[in-house]
Design a protein around this nucleic acid. Sequence first.
DNA 1: AAGTAGATGTTCT
DNA 2: GAACATCTACTTA
Length: 191
Amino acid sequence: MPRARTLRHKDFKADAPAVALALIGATLLVDGVGGVIVETEAYDQHDPASHCHPGPTQRNRVMFGPPGHAYVYRSYGLHWCLNFVCREAGHGAGVLIRALQPTHGIELMRERRGLDNERLLCSGPGRLTQALGITQAHYGLPLDAPPFRLLAAPADTPVEVISGPRIGISKAIDLPWRFGLAGSRFVSRRF
DNA sequence: AAGTAGATGTTCT
DNA sequence: GAACATCTACTTA
């Protein structure tokens, strides 16, 4: 099996829904721990549900910088959520990573999550950051350098992607900007 | 299976 | 103060 291609800056120079769709099937590792991305959501500046909708602020500033970097924020005071910055500088846009199928470092993820059930290790944006050890310390870091590793899905195995409305928001609820790997049991909720 | 409450910190009005 | 890109534990059926 050939070594997978590392995703680079260029892979994030597209609008958020296109990047969110393309990321399904890629492998995300943080210090060697992680798995296959099976669920994402797109957010961009024209979208009232997005953190970058109001323009640059202290929290969202990384989304107005170069693509291919991590935007990390705290959700409901308790959880960290991981986004990938996309599109060109000057416009805010990002892709929320919502679920992984665990493949690497499963024992460590079990310890961090305090759970045995593999299906529940990374099936939600707050769950996967806990399993991978992501915190504010990762804010703004490039995705093509340690501790991150981001590998493209093998080109010879096509992935079937489904989409639907995003979860947990109250604005722009009809945009079908949630993407998932068809049939995966590791998504946070059924489509 | 489905619904609800409560935990908690940051951002915004 | 209110809202919030969430999760868990607990209830009710």
